[in-house]
């Protein structure tokens, strides 16, 4: 049976070695200062009483004022589990040191966090966008991207960012024109009759901007 260690117990153990490292700890997680996270991680891996050989899961949470990088660590030999958190300093440009050197399993997951949350991992051997293409604007898992969230839905970007041309797909389930202040207009470089050719004559009135119906 896996022992789900409490953060405070692990924090004690870390403090013996790194007195300054632990920021907070509670029953579930232990938070470590970003500057020392690599050393602490190596300690967590190599300490015989902890022996967290595996970084099972690496992810990040956007708390709107700060980010949290969350590591779920698993010890195979001692069968115990702990959640390690790191808070990058800057919200605008979050950077934390990479733990790839400690757990190789983190490298793809850190790429994913970088790709979707925009947290850079300093020292990562190949930090790149994993799922999205290079040049994708924004980091989708941030709360500011398509500002949707429970209860206080605010349409942020009125259309989905798209390569070439800004006339994209309107996204957001309850999007209305009034809220967005954006109206579908002609795409730059596309003349109206191109639309006519594409959509057929019947739908002309609904599509072209100069028909006065939009």
């Amino acid at each position: 049976m896996t022992a789900w260690l409490t953060g405070t117990a692990v924090a004690e153990r870390i403090r013996e070695r790194f007195p300054e490292a632990v920021v907070t700890a509670n029953d579930v997680w232990v938070e470590v200062a970003a500057e020392q996270v690599a050393e602490v991680a190596a300690f967590l891996r190599d300490d015989p009483a902890l022996a967290f050989e595996m970084a099972t899961d690496v992810t990040a949470v956007d708390w709107e004022e700060y980010f949290e990088v969350v590591y779920h660590l698993q010890s195979i030999t001692r069968n115990q589990f702990i959640t390690l958190k790191v808070r990058p300093q800057d919200y605008a440009d979050p950077v934390v040191p990479t733990l790839t050197g400690v757990w190789w399993g983190a490298h793809l997951q850190e790429c994913e966090v970088y790709d979707l949350m925009g947290i850079r991992f300093a020292g990562h051997p190949n930090l790149r966008r994993l799922f999205l293409w290079e040049g994708f604007s924004g980091f989708p898992l941030r709360k500011s991207f398509l500002q949707i969230g429970q209860g206080r839905f605010r349409p942020g970007l009125p259309h989905f960012p798209k390569e070439g041309g800004d006339r994209g797909v309107i996204s957001g389930p309850r999007w209305t024109e009034q809220e967005a202040g954006w109206r579908p207009g002609p795409t730059p470089g596309v003349r109206p009759h191109d639309d006519r050719r594409r959509y057929g004559h019947q739908q002309m009135g609904a599509v072209t901007p100069d028909s006065g119906q939009n």
């Binding site: 099972t56 899961d57 992810t59 949470v61 956007d62 779920h72 994913e112 429970q150």
Partner: peptide, 28 residues
């Protein structure tokens, strides 16, 4: 290992919904 990491802020939908995909991580 398929893990889910859910963060709740007390609302009706998760504040953070994360999935630990074994398919991806097994390709490390």
């Amino acid at each position: 290992e398929l893990g889910f990491y859910l963060v709740s802020d007390g609302g009706t939908s998760p504040w953070r919904f994360h999935m630990r995909p074994p398919s991806l991580i097994n390709l490390s």
